[in-house]
C-alpha cells in the first residue's frame, strides 16, 4: 500500500513532464488546440477517437501516450475545478477508481473524476463532450455551494 501511494505521488509529480514529452510528438496545429481550456477536452476526445480503437488501450505500446493524455485531462480539471486535489483509491478493489489517479474538489462536491474510468467509453461510444460535461457539472455545483471565491 505504501509503495503504491509513493508510486502515485511520483506519478502526480511527473504530470507536467509527461504532457511536455507528449507535446513534442504532436503537430503545432494540435498543440494549439490543447490549450488546457475546458473546450480543449472535446479536442482531446476527438484525438482519442481518431487515433485509437478500444483494443489499443490494452496495447503496452500505447501506454505512454495514453498516460500523457490522461495527465493532460487531469491537469485541465485541476486548472478549472476549485481546489482540485489529486487522489487515488488503494483499498477497495471493487471501487471503479481503484488504483486510478483521480481528482476531487475540496470540499468534496460531486464525485472524484479519473480519465482512466472513461477512456473505454470514449472509444467505444465515440462520444464527444463527456469530459467537458463532467467538469462543468461539478464546477457549477461547487460555485452554487461555495461561490467562486474559494477556487
Amino acid at each position: 500500500m505504501k509503495e503504491k501511494k509513493e508510486n502515485f505521488d511520483a506519478w502526480v509529480a511527473l504530470i507536467d513532464d509527461r504532457i511536455e514529452d507528449w507535446f513534442i510528438t504532436l503537430s503545432n496545429h494540435l498543440k494549439d488546440k490543447f490549450d488546457y481550456s475546458i473546450n480543449s477536452l472535446d479536442e482531446i476526445e476527438k484525438y482519442l477517437i481518431e487515433k485509437f480503437v478500444l483494443d489499443d488501450l490494452r496495447n503496452e505500446m500505447n501506454k505512454k501516450e495514453i498516460d500523457a493524455i490522461a495527465s493532460y485531462i487531469l491537469k485541465t480539471y485541476k486548472l478549472h475545478w476549485p481546489n482540485g486535489e489529486y487522489v487515488i483509491e488503494l483499498e477497495d478493489k471493487k471501487n471503479v477508481l481503484f488504483n486510478r489517479p483521480a481528482i476531487i474538489t475540496n470540499p468534496k462536491v460531486g464525485m472524484a473524476f479519473s480519465p482512466f474510468q472513461f477512456l473505454q467509453s470514449t472509444l467505444n461510444l465515440k462520444r464527444i463532450g463527456a469530459f467537458k460535461q463532467m467538469l462543468l457539472y461539478t464546477k457549477n455545483k461547487y460555485i452554487e455551494m461555495y461561490g467562486e471565491g474559494r477556487s
Partner: peptide, 26 residues
C-alpha cells in the same frame, strides 16, 4: 459485477454498489 462508485450526496460521500456496471458503455 458489484462495482462501487463513490457518490457525493448533500456533501457526504456515499458508496453506491451497482449490481451490474459496464464501464465501456456507461
Amino acid at each position: 459485477r458489484e462495482q462501487t462508485l463513490d457518490v457525493v450526496v448533500n456533501g457526504q460521500t456515499k458508496k453506491r454498489r451497482l449490481d451490474i456496471y459496464d464501464e465501456g458503455n456507461l
